[in-house]
Design a protein around this nucleic acid. Structure first.
Lengths: 202, 202
DNA sequence: TACGCTTGCCAACAAGCGTTGACCAACATG
DNA sequence: CATGTTGGTCAACGCTTGTTGGCAAGCGTA
């Protein structure tokens, strides 16, 4: 056996929860720094060296814990939209609820901005966004969609409006979009989302 | 005077229109290749070497004609949205007209996709998008906006929906968004844009 | 104490990048 | 013809990138 082969536990996040590894803090620091950098710079310009410097460790540690840059990105961009359960929400409030949810979600977690930045330039990032969309948005919206087979289309329309606002507001920093308050954004977008969700197919 | 300093005419596109430069074809080839690469790969991954290879010339030619990579991008991403004159369009058709215009615009000119890819990762690209937005969308929409000072906000809302659809359809390739026909997209989005443009402020 | 795994740093690698300057062929003009 | 300008190639520069392997210190167990 090689002297310093990365044992399985080295790549797995936590094999034995009873004995937390000493490196857990380092792992977390790397991940946090990676999210920051990916969100701020996108995939290519977020260098492993810069991430390592932010995390105050050596670049080679990143490689040991996450294999390579793609592995780091995969780990750093695990996304949970925390899509709310809509089945108990009054039908006429669905749009407003969704818009407000994502507005708050976006501003408390820069992972979403990172996902978008990377999804636009990197095919792996785009694939991840498609996955998140299908697995996390799909079911929630299908549950409240009038006709099940229309659900994907309606979900895509909603995604187009919500991602579009996120793009203008958090990535492009279009002044008029940045200047809107939460309530204003909700007031404008909620009817749109509501219609995409509940209106009969045109 | 240095022997081979780039004379002013070398950097200017065309100083003397009476005598077209022999290099015009090369310049155009570089620009076309640059647009392709920027659209496909984004700013960082679109390398000068790759662009030069596509244009079948030496990388140093790119430098001579466009100064540096940023200059090349600036030249390659000159954008004309060809925003239509809306003042003669019946008020109730404004939304549909706008949506269809940009749908067609996007599919016949990959510069728009390039602009979006670069605008997301590169600050210069974002600045350019803000400029295009302000200079080309602003006036057209202000001309049909009920209250002039509301025009920027309304324009940003419209941009959020149109850019969002472009993002889902042409960049992320979200299957349900790709699957929609032009008419379906117009049918769904036109009422949204129409409302952002003409509805009273909520 | 001695041994083995873990954590971490260091120095280096090969590859690719944007960019530069020397050099040559074709053309235009005196 | 000679001369200066333009269009183009070539080889290299300095630098940064992702990635690798070796080595030292810390810790756990026997």
């Amino acid at each position: 056996m090689p002297e310093h082969a990365p044992s399985a536990a080295d790549t797995a996040p936590d094999a034995d929860p009873a004995r937390p590894r000493r490196s857990a803090a380092t792992r977390a620091a790397i991940l946090a720094a990676a999210r920051d950098r990916f969100a701020a710079d996108g995939y290519e310009r977020a260098t492993i060296r810069a991430i390592a410097k932010d995390a105050r460790i050596d670049p080679s540690m990143v490689m040991r814990y996450y294999g390579n840059k793609e592995g780091l990105f995969a780990a750093a961009s695990e996304i949970d939209l925390r899509a709310p359960d809509l089945s108990r929400v009054p039908r006429e409030e669905l749009g407003a609820r969704l818009v407000r949810h994502f507005l708050e979600r976006w501003e408390c977690d820069e992972t979403l901005t990172a996902m978008m930045r990377v999804g636009v330039t990197n095919e792996a990032g785009a694939e991840r966004m498609r996955g998140v969309f299908a697995e996390q948005m799909g079911p929630v919206l299908a549950a409240v969609s009038p006709v099940p087979e229309e659900a994907p289309t309606r979900a895509a329309l909603i995604a187009s409006q919500i991602l579009g606002m996120a793009l203008c507001r958090y990535v492009l920093h279009l002044p008029p979009a940045v200047g809107l308050s939460h309530d204003e954004v909700v007031a404008w977008l909620a009817p749109t989302v509501q219609r995409y969700l509940t209106a009969e197919q045109p």
